[in-house]
Amino acid sequence: MVTNATSFSRSGLTDWLVQRLSAVVLGAYMLCILGSFVVHPDMDYEQWRALFAADSMRIFSLLSLAALCAHAWIGMWTVGTDYLTSLQFGKGATSIRLAYQAICILLIAVYLIWGIRIFWGT
């Protein structure tokens, strides 16, 4: 029951789909960032700042941040529910898993707020 209550969308199929859609966004963003390093190997501060200040890049960055949060939630949930079970931890497993999930969700929330601050606030 706790297992279902902490999944990202409360639906395995939706989680599955969100995991893949967010993966495509994150893959595209990573290639975009790495590509910008390849195209401009000697970027100075002004070029670097301008890259992240463009509206199109702000949208892409924030979209990727949201994708990262969803993707990490689903991934960390999957790992936690696979390895932090009663098989490994006996009766205390649910408490351990819940604590683990709370820490993950807290960190995701920090990343989200911090990331919005970086991509929108600077």
């Binding site: 670097w48 990262l68 990490a72 960190l107 911090w114 970086i118 600077t122």
Partner: peptide, 14 residues
Amino acid sequence: VAVLLYLLQLSLAS
């Protein structure tokens, strides 16, 4: 990601 966000924030700040 915490390391990357830190480096990104610092590099964009000034």
